[in-house]
Amino acid sequence: MASSRDRARKLAREKLDRQLARRAGKQRRRRQIQAGLGAALALVLIVGGVAWLGGAFDSDEPVDTTATDQCAWTPQNTGSNPELKDVGQPPKSGLPTTGTRPMTITTDKGEPIVVGLDLANATCSAASLSYLASKQFYDNTTCHEITAEGAIRCGDPSGTGQGGPSYTVYDENMPVAPAPAPSASPGTAAKPAAPLYPKGTVALIGNPPGANGSQFLIFYKDFTPKAEPQYPIVGTVTGGMATVTKLSKIPTVANSAGDKVTPKDKITVQSITVGEPSAEPAAVPSAAPSASPQS
Score class of each variant (00 low, 15 high):
Gly38Phe: 15
Ile46Trp: 13
Ala8Ser: 12
Met103Glu: 01
Ala193Pro: 04
Val261Gln: 12
Thr66Ala: 05
Thr107Asn: 01
Gly235Ile: 04
Val115Arg: 00
Gln76Asp: 13
Ser134Lys: 07
Ala40Leu: 12
Gln136Asp: 12
Gly210Thr: 08
Lys266Asp: 04
Pro90Thr: 10
Trp52Tyr: 02
Ala211Arg: 10
Ala287Pro: 09
Lys246Val: 05
Pro263Ser: 03
Ser271Cys: 10
Ser183Ala: 15
Glu83Ile: 02
Ser185Cys: 03
Thr142Gln: 09
Leu16His: 13
Gly150Ala: 09
Pro192Leu: 11
Gly163Asn: 09
Cys71Tyr: 05
Gly213His: 06
Gly94Trp: 07
Gly99Gln: 04
Ala279Lys: 14
Pro102Ala: 10
Asn255Ile: 10
Gln19Trp: 14
Glu228Leu: 14
Lys249Ala: 14
Pro178Leu: 02
Ile33Trp: 07
Pro112Tyr: 09
Gly110Asn: 04
Pro165Val: 08
Cys124Leu: 04
Leu204Tyr: 01
Gln270Val: 02
Ala67Gln: 07
Thr273Glu: 02
Glu149Asn: 10
Arg28Asn: 14
Glu280Leu: 09
Ala282Ser: 15
Ala211Met: 03
Gln136Ile: 02
Gly150Val: 03
Val202Trp: 02
Lys266Ile: 12
Ala283Tyr: 06
Pro62Trp: 01
Val244Ala: 05
Ala181Thr: 07
Ala127Thr: 03
Lys15Met: 12
Met241Lys: 06
Asp58Thr: 07
Thr147Glu: 14
Pro229Tyr: 00
Cys154Gln: 00
Gln270Trp: 01
Ala190Ser: 15
Ala35Pro: 09
Ser278Lys: 11
Pro90Arg: 02
Asn212His: 04
Thr104Pro: 03
Gly240Glu: 04
Glu111Lys: 06
Gln215Gly: 09
Pro192His: 12
Val237Gln: 08
Ala227Val: 00
Pro157Thr: 11
Lys135Tyr: 10
Leu84Arg: 02
Pro198Ala: 03
Lys260Ser: 11
Val253Asn: 09
Gly54Met: 06
Thr147Trp: 07
Thr107Trp: 00
Ile267Glu: 00
Asp222Val: 12
Leu16Gly: 13
Val50Met: 07
Gln34Lys: 15
Ala193Val: 13
Asn207Ala: 11
Ala177Gly: 14
Lys92Ile: 00
Leu11Asp: 05
Asp69Ser: 06
Asp108Asn: 14
Leu95Ser: 01
Met103Cys: 06
Leu196Lys: 10
Pro251Ala: 07
Thr160Gln: 13
Ser166Leu: 05
Ile267Leu: 02
Gly25His: 11
Thr252Ala: 06
His144Thr: 01
Leu132Gln: 05
Gly258His: 07
Gln136Leu: 09
Lys266Phe: 01
Val261Glu: 05
Val114Ser: 07
Arg5Ser: 15
Thr160Met: 04
Ala151Asn: 04
Gly163Lys: 00
Ala211His: 14
Pro192Ile: 14
Gln76Thr: 10
Pro112Ala: 06
Pro157His: 06
Gly206Gln: 01
Gly258Leu: 01
Ala287Trp: 01
Met1Gln: 15
Asn77Trp: 10
Gln76Pro: 05
Gly48Cys: 02
Gln89Phe: 14
Gln32Gly: 11
Ala24Asp: 14
Ser4Thr: 08
Gly187Asn: 04
Ala148Pro: 03
Gln70Cys: 07
Ala283Gln: 15
Phe223Asp: 00
